[in-house]
C-alpha cells in the first residue's frame, strides 16, 4: 500500500511537470493553430539557464528567474523570427521549420554551455523528506513540483476565465476572425501567449532540473510525451491538458512499478523481463491508443 501511494505521488509529480509543458503547447495550438516542436527546446533552455544561474550565484530563486526569463524570451524570439510567418501555412511547414529550430537550439546550447551536462543540486530549503504517512517519507523537492503544477493550474484557470487576456484567448480559440474583428492587436496577443508558454516550459525546466538529468535532447523526449498528453486530453483545452497529464503521469509511474511484477507472476523470468521492459515503455502509448479508439478527439476537447 505504501509502495502504491509512493508510486501514485511519483505519477502526480511527473504529471505535474507534463502539465506545465502541455498547457502552454495546447494553448498555442488552440489559439494560433500552429504545431510548435520547439516547445521542448524551451524546456531545455530553461533548465540550462537555471543550472548556470544557480552555479554562478548559488541562489535557487535566481535560477527560477533565469529559467522563466531565458525560456520566455527565447520563445518570444522564436515566435517573432520564425513562427509568425507560418500561421496561415500548412502544418507540414510548421513541423519542418520548428524541427530545424530544434536542431539549431540543441547545437547552440551545446556550443554555449558545453557538451558536459551541468549538475544542479536540490536547493537547501527543499532538501530532505517529509513524513506523509507512517512509513512513507516523500522528498520535499518532488512535493514542491506537485504544488507548482497545482498553482499553475489554478493560475491558468483564473487567467483564462477571469481576465481580459483570457477572454481574448477563449474568443481566439473559438473564432479567430471575431477577435480580428474586435480590432484587438492579435499579433501582440500571439506573442504574449508564446512567451507565456515558453515561461511555463522554463518553470518545468528549473523544477525538474534537480531531479532529472540536464542534457541536450532532453526537450524532444518530453515533447513527444507532451504530445501524448495533448492527444489524450483533447487538443486546445487546458482542462484536457491537466487530465491528460495526470493520466499519463500515473500510467507511466504505476506501469513502471507494477507491470514487471505482474508479468513475473505468469511468465518465466527472462521472457517477463524483456516483455516487461517493452510494455513499460509502451504503456503511455497504449493508453493513447485506447483513448483514440473510444474518443478520437480526446477526453476533454476544446470544441464540442
Amino acid at each position: 500500500m505504501i509502495l502504491f501511494i509512493e508510486q501514485a505521488l511519483n505519477g502526480l509529480q511527473y504529471g505535474s511537470m507534463l502539465f506545465l509543458l502541455a498547457s502552454g503547447l495546447t494553448l498555442i495550438f488552440g489559439i494560433m493553430g500552429v504545431i510548435n516542436l520547439t516547445h521542448g527546446a524551451f524546456y531545455m533552455v530553461g533548465a540550462y539557464c537555471a543550472a548556470f544561474a544557480v552555479l554562478s550565484t548559488g541562489s535557487f530563486l535566481v535560477g527560477i528567474a533565469a529559467a522563466l526569463i531565458g525560456a520566455g524570451l527565447y520563445a518570444v524570439l522564436v515566435e517573432v523570427a520564425v513562427v509568425q510567418w507560418l500561421y496561415r501555412r500548412d502544418h507540414l511547414y510548421q513541423v519542418l521549420a520548428t524541427l530545424g529550430l530544434i536542431l539549431f537550439t540543441n547545437e547552440a546550447v551545446s556550443m554555449i554551455f558545453g557538451r558536459r551536462p551541468p549538475l544542479m543540486d536540490i536547493p537547501p530549503l527543499l532538501q530532505g523528506s517529509v513524513p506523509l504517512l507512517p512509513g512513507l517519507d516523500y522528498p520535499l523537492m518532488r512535493i514542491a513540483l506537485i504544488v507548482t503544477g497545482g498553482l499553475v493550474a489554478i493560475g491558468l484557470w483564473a487567467l483564462v476565465n477571469h481576465t481580459r487576456v483570457g477572454m481574448l484567448i477563449r474568443a481566439g480559440a473559438d473564432d479567430r476572425e471575431m477577435v480580428d474583428a474586435l480590432g484587438v492587436d492579435i499579433r501582440r496577443l500571439y506573442t504574449l501567449v508564446f512567451g507565456l508558454g515558453g515561461a511555463l516550459c522554463g518553470l518545468a525546466g528549473v523544477m525538474a532540473a534537480p531531479l532529472l538529468a540536464i542534457e541536450i535532447g532532453m526537450g524532444e523526449r518530453v515533447l513527444i510525451t507532451t504530445f501524448v498528453v495533448i492527444v489524450v486530453g483533447g487538443v486546445g483545452s487546458v482542462r484536457g491538458a491537466l487530465v491528460g497529464a495526470l493520466l499519463v503521469g500515473m500510467v507511466d509511474s504505476l506501469g513502471r512499478a507494477y507491470i514487471p511484477q505482474l508479468l513475473l507472476l505468469s511468465l518465466p523470468a527472462t521472457t517477463a523481463d524483456t516483455l516487461g521492459a517493452g510494455l513499460v515503455s509502451a504503456s503511455i502509448y497504449l493508453l493513447m491508443a485506447i483513448v483514440l479508439l473510444v474518443r478520437p478527439n480526446g477526453l476533454l476537447p476544446a470544441r464540442g
Binding site: V82, W85, L86, Y93, Q94, L96, A97, T98, L99, G100, L101, I102, L103, F104, T105, N106, E107, A108, S110, M111
Partner: peptide, 16 residues
C-alpha cells in the same frame, strides 16, 4: 562538428 547549427536553419528556411 557543429554542422547542425547550419543544417537546422537551412531546414527552417526551406519551410519558410
Amino acid at each position: 562538428e557543429h554542422w547542425m547549427i547550419v543544417m537546422g536553419p537551412i531546414l527552417t528556411l526551406v519551410a519558410l
